[in-house]
Computed example of a mutant assay.
Amino acid sequence: MIDEQAVTKPGADRGFVFQQYSLLPWKTTSQNVEFGLRIKGIAKAKRRELVNEYLNRVGLYKHRDSYPHQLSGGMKQRASIVRALINSPSVLLMDEPFSALDAQTRYMMQELLMEIWNDFKTTVIFVTHDIEEAVLLGDRILVMGVNPGHIKEDIAINLKRPRHINDTLTPEFIQISRQVLATIREETLKSMEC
């Protein structure tokens, strides 16, 4: 269910950012970002205006005519995020989107995502195995249990927003991270039992 409506088929009300960059290799950055708008029948001038605005927002405007093979990993992921957001989805689903990035680029992408969320307020469901990332980005952390898969714990993150990477050093942040780690550790030990 999304916005109290059953999900029965793909739709523009859901954006998805995959672990692997899912840009179409034969299209430029601009063409990749405008793809959903084109399918929705948005006029060419309006598409161009929106694409330029979004690319400028994430620092990709000067790379609008580049193809995916000409972009770094962080650039590809920014383009993927913008492509999902430009359609104004009710929910943005993100499956470990920063896992393939180096540490510095990952921090930059986390900060960019927090800025985008602050501006758009789109609901984001973010899958990650990184505890620090979950605490930094989330308002809730749902820890999965094993055998069979289930929600083991629902942990509220009551840290003030906006958040920044430096917040990871605060006692409150560390306490929440320890709580999540303890829950995950308990489940990991269960999965190792014979």
Rank of each mutant, 00 (worst) to 15 (best):
A84R: 08
T105C: 04
D102W: 11
V180T: 02
P171H: 07
S177A: 14
S22D: 11
E115R: 12
G73H: 03
S90Y: 06
T29I: 00
D95S: 08
P162L: 06
I174F: 09
I165L: 08
E53A: 15
E115K: 14
S30M: 06
P162N: 03
L37W: 09
Y21C: 06
S66N: 12
T128N: 05
L181K: 15
L93I: 09
S177K: 15
D102H: 10
M114K: 02
R47E: 09
L169E: 08
R38Q: 15
I131V: 15
R178F: 04
T8K: 11
A156L: 12
M144F: 14
V33M: 03
L142F: 13
S80Q: 03
I42D: 01
L71N: 07
K152D: 06
P68S: 07
S177D: 03
M108E: 14
G74R: 04
P89M: 11
L93W: 02
T170F: 01
N158F: 00
N158Y: 00
D3Y: 00
V51Y: 04
E187P: 11
L137T: 04
T8F: 03
Q175T: 15
R161Y: 09
K62D: 13
V127E: 11
L159N: 09
Y107S: 02
S99K: 06
L189I: 14
E49K: 14
V82Y: 00
G59N: 05
E111P: 05
L142I: 06
L189C: 01
R161S: 06
V82M: 11
L189H: 13
D13S: 14
L181E: 10
T29A: 02
A182Y: 06
L50D: 10
L93D: 10
G145M: 07
E4N: 14
T170Q: 10
Q175F: 03
Q70G: 05
M192E: 12
R163F: 09
T122A: 04
G59S: 03
F98P: 08
A84Q: 05
E172H: 12
E115L: 07
I184D: 05
F173K: 12
I81R: 07
D65V: 01
L71C: 08
Y21S: 14
D65M: 07
F120K: 09
K9S: 13
K27S: 11
A182R: 13
V143H: 04
Q175W: 00
P25K: 12
E34H: 01
E53N: 13
A45T: 14
L85G: 07
G41M: 05
T28A: 05
A45H: 04
H129M: 03
R38F: 01
G73L: 03
R57W: 10
M114H: 02
K62W: 00
E133M: 05
I157H: 03
R185S: 12
L93S: 08
G145K: 07
G138D: 09
A84S: 14
S191A: 15
V82F: 03
W117P: 11
G41Y: 07
T183C: 12
T170K: 13
T105P: 07
Q77Y: 02
F35R: 06
Q175A: 15
V17H: 05
L142W: 09
E193K: 14
Y54T: 04
E4C: 02
S30G: 05
M108Q: 15
V82P: 07
K121G: 09
I125E: 10
K76S: 04
F35W: 13
P89C: 07
G145T: 10
H164Q: 09
